[in-house]
Simulated assay, not measured.
Amino acid sequence: MMIFRAVAGAVALAVTLPAMAGEVSVKMLNSGPGGMMVFDPAFVRLKPGDTIKFLPTDKGHNVETIKGMAPDGAEYVKSAVGQEAVVTFEREGVYGFKCSPHYMMGMVALVVVGDKRDNLEAAKSVQHNKLTQKRIEPLLAQVQ
């Protein structure tokens, strides 16, 4: 009987504790996986409530939401160049990010939060230059 009570108490405690949100670090690099001017990793899956810490590992980078590549009502993100940015994702959907100074060089990242993909087609329809399009298409292809 004592074992059952201890187990039942542990189960009740586990059910009442809030879920711990996760945190992912994304580096902003001059050179890394995928070439020059990249986010590492460039593709991230999260649960609602999780956080990304964007780290300007190399100088001259920032992170900014790509217009048209975020769920309705999501907070617009734009950090100062050279500054770390911490973003908590509450809304489910697909988010596109760029480094403003290096966007024309294809410095983009894609974040998928939760299971809803309501804005995926809108995100796919955003127009980019040729190099950026070449980098973002494989990221969008990973969204399921």
Score class of each variant (00 low, 15 high):
Ile3Cys: 04
Phe4His: 10
Phe4Glu: 13
Ala8His: 12
Ala8Val: 12
Val11Asp: 07
Leu13Gln: 14
Ala14Asp: 09
Pro18Ile: 10
Ala21Arg: 00
Ser25Val: 13
Gly34Thr: 00
Gly34Cys: 00
Gly35Asn: 01
Gly35Trp: 00
Val38Gln: 06
Val44Met: 00
Leu46Met: 05
Lys47Phe: 06
Gly49Trp: 01
Asp50Glu: 04
Ile52Ala: 06
Ile52Asp: 07
Phe54Asp: 08
Pro56Val: 02
Val63Gln: 09
Val77Met: 00
Lys78Leu: 08
Val81Ala: 07
Gln83Val: 03
Glu84His: 02
Thr88Phe: 03
Phe89Gln: 10
Gly96Tyr: 07
Phe97Cys: 02
Cys99Thr: 06
Ser100Phe: 10
Met105Trp: 09
Gly106Val: 07
Met107Glu: 15
Val108Asp: 05
Leu110Gly: 06
Val111Leu: 00
Val111Asp: 11
Val113Lys: 05
Gly114Cys: 03
Gly114Met: 02
Arg117Gln: 04
Asp118Trp: 07
Glu121Thr: 06
Ala122Gln: 14
Lys124Met: 08
Val126Glu: 14
Gln127Pro: 00
Lys130Phe: 13
Lys130Gln: 14
Lys130Asp: 15
Leu131Ser: 10
Gln133Thr: 13
Gln133Asn: 14
Gln133Lys: 15
Pro138Ala: 10
Pro138Leu: 06
Leu139Gln: 08
Ala141Gln: 14
